[in-house]
Design a binder for these strands. Structure first.
Lengths: 114, 114
DNA sequence: CCGACGAATCGACGTCTGTCAATGAAAAGA
DNA sequence: TCTTTTCATTGACAGACGTCGATTCGTCGG
């Protein structure tokens, strides 16, 4: 939902030294590592994939629990991590929360691995 | 060194479903997560960066310990992880082992985040 | 109001991971 | 051969992370 707190979004906000071309400061390496760690989980990768290929590009939590084979609290846990990283956004409508991927965000990360 | 064992290199050998376009199977998500976890560490990111911007594109371990601010065993530990992932290669010459980055390998990972 | 439902939070547990000191192995020099 | 240098391996420890059951918080229907 738009009301959710975003913490780690600032990780690589503006464009990018690119790992193999710049010497990469200690602070920046830490930021990049945190951002990549969000993606380094099979459940979160499948979440991104499921959301991107869902009807209308979005899905509620209850539709994600079963295909992932994880408990509802676990799925909510990963959704929060992805949300905090800015990779997905949630929109609460009635009793359901509809999540959708933010492809631009993934593109930012991709461009750092130049 | 060329004699070193490579284990996790098979992670995403041939080209790529791309996270946001394919539904991403459970097995493939696991492989991708393992591959990304190798990059999700500040010391390993700085290692890649240091090697890429080193003289002649290579450096020995003793040249890497001090700028990283980690113990020699710790640096060797991370070098092994990067080597097993195919992101760097080591070449033993005399008493020194010269490491260099493998940019193609990083490009493979990058392309998965399409 | 009250009960049912969807989702987030909490608490606890087991596992994985980064780190270092100590040790081991290989190579060069005296 | 003995010593020194360079790097890898081992063992141990602390902290972080994924997972689930139980609980709590909102929201809708009756």
């Amino acid at each position: 939902m738009a009301t959710r707190t975003r913490s780690a979004v600032s990780a690589l906000e503006e464009c990018c030294p690119a790992v193999l071309s710049a010497p990469l400061s200690e602070e920046r390496a830490e930021e990049l590592a945190v951002a990549l760690a969000v993606l380094a989980d099979p459940v979160r990768l499948r979440l991104l994939s499921l959301l991107a290929s869902a009807e209308a590009g979005e899905a509620c939590v209850c539709e994600l629990v079963e295909p992932l084979g994880r408990s509802q609290p676990t799925v909510s846990h990963h959704l929060k991590i992805l949300t905090d990283a800015g990779l997905i956004v949630g929109d609460k409508r009635g009793r359901w929360v509809w999540y959708r991927a933010v492809p631009d965000r993934l593109g930012q990360l991709r461009s750092v691995l130049a």
